[in-house]
Amino acid sequence: MTLGTFRYERPSSLDEAIRQAVEAPGARWLAGGMSLLPLMKMELAAPPALVDLAGVEDLVGVRERDDVLWVGAMTRHAELALHPLVARHASLLAAAASQVGDPQVRNRGTIGGSLAHADPAADLPAAVLALDATIQVASPRGRRGIPAGGFFLGPLMTALEPDEVIVAVTVPQRGARRQAYRKRPHPASGYAVVGIAASLRWEGDRVASAAVAVTGVADHAFRAQRTEALLTGEVLTDALLVEASGVVTDGQEVWGDLYASAEYRRHLAGVTTRQVLEHLRADG
């Protein structure tokens, strides 16, 4: 396991980073390296140049700005898991980050890297979907925001253009919601066999609005629209809970592997959703 040869750039500003990437066609951004370096070691990727984002100040930090929570792309999973602002406004993001891999991976891996990599079994994609977050990106053409709902396109495929860099993830602050993330890790890889992120806004004992996102089950993380529709405006009775959980993978092509077949995954997604909803109902 050795890396091939490549150019290495370490810019100190966003502009410089973007320029360097333009100058080295085929260059890849390097964040925590937790996904990119294994790909290179396994000879599944051989970029001619890496532009290391570690020194780019513009991508660092967690702040409240206007009505959004601004999370810099270089925020490490370990920081997300512990940051008070994340805990206050986006607790399911903290919960998801705290369940990524192991301590070493959490101390290196970043939110930007995780989202850009778009592993179908990664945790953070479900989190940003359930939070209605926006992925803020920059490129030689300027800046734009990509809603999380339109970001994940397939396994390791996103709406990012090759020259675009994720600058931050913004999460709208929309009042009190109960949030949770629950994951069933694969016993070997630790990635999600099923991961359910849910954020519910309550009006009394009624669910005013519901966001439920699923990872690990299909070729990319998705919002469980039928489940959300069933919950919205309703009192969360036992019967509704069972019904809404049971349809969480409806309309999805669920995939299976040696460890968990499609049928079992679908079942687990239902069970896990039920557990999350029970928790959110009890929790308050």
């Binding site: 694969h186 016993p187 070997a188 890889s189 040696l258 460890y259």
Partner: peptide, 28 residues
């Protein structure tokens, strides 16, 4: 509970890395 080396019909080892082959973890 966890470990198992599995081949497909063509003789490819399906559990050919620590991402697929589950060794016990202390917390379990």
């Amino acid at each position: 509970l966890w470990e198992g080396g599995a081949y497909d019909a063509q003789g490819q080892l399906l559990t050919g890395s620590l991402m697929d082959y589950a060794l016990p973890k202390a917390r379990w």
